[in-house]
């Protein structure tokens, strides 16, 4: 399978502390990588470096052999990143939020994405400004983007937080679908991913003093 994302000799220092160095990671199409490690080990920092939000102190990240800093347009057309903060505007309804992200990612919507919102369990809440919804429900709006996107590479920071059992199962199904379609996922999660739908590869970060 083709290499989608490749990280070479990454090093990250936050404040005065070395998080990791000499980190290598090759994400192939069809793979899901879980970044594992204790709090403060640099999981989120690694994801942000992979997404190009944070510049590593050393090393480089390449998407399909091209360094991400050089061709950011191609990279971000092919990347879906959902961080700690969901990026959902509280003043807008679920539909409006999704329509915005679909449009800027170049996805054509022929009708409002009711079906997708129904899938993530937001039936009847489509037209309420997101500030009226619970944290879990807001999170679901952000995750609904997973059904809208055509990006092959997903980078997800703790996608399972604030989700109930049903929501977690739903996410697993979507992951499996994405992987079999030739996509790839890099994510962090506190709990182990227990599923028979796909094989998880793990990258462990240790807390360094």
């Amino acid at each position: 399978m083709a290499v989608l994302l490749e990280a070479n000799e990454l090093m990250s220092i936050r404040g005065e502390r070395m998080l990791f160095s000499d980190l290598q990671l090759s994400v192939h199409a069809g793979e899901i990588w879980q970044i594992v490690g204790p709090n403060g080990a640099g999981k989120s920092s690694l994801l942000r470096i992979l997404a190009g939000l944070l510049t590593p102190q050393a090393g480089s990240v390449a998407f399909q052999q091209n360094p991400i800093a050089e061709d950011r347009e191609t990279f971000y057309q092919n990347l879906l990143f959902i961080g700690h903060k969901a990026g959902v505007k509280a003043e807008l309804t679920a539909i409006e939020n999704l329509e915005f992200y679909a449009a800027v990612q170049g996805v054509e919507l022929h009708e409002p994405p009711y079906e997708i919102l129904a899938k993530v369990g937001l039936v009847g809440l489509e037209d309420i400004p997101a500030q009226g919804l619970s944290a879990g429900q807001q999170r679901r709006i952000a995750l609904a983007r997973l059904w809208l996107t055509q990006a092959p590479l997903w980078i997800l920071d703790e996608p399972f937080t604030a989700l109930d059992v049903e929501g977690i199962a739903l996410l697993h199904t979507r992951f499996a679908e994405h992987l079999s379609a030739g996509g790839a996922i890099v994510l962090t999660s506190h709990q182990e991913l227990i599923t028979e739908l796909y094989q998880v590869k793990a990258l462990t970060l240790r807390y360094q003093h």
Binding site: A103, Q105, G106, T149, Q150, P152, A181, G182
Partner: peptide
């Protein structure tokens, strides 16, 4: 293999303006 569509720069610009005005 998944491929992403190409959105135009102007379209993104317009979407951002539209969203922010709606929020405001």
């Amino acid at each position: 293999m998944l491929t992403a569509n190409k959105g135009s720069t102007f379209k993104v610009f317009k979407q951002l303006v539209k969203r922010d005005i709606r929020v405001a």
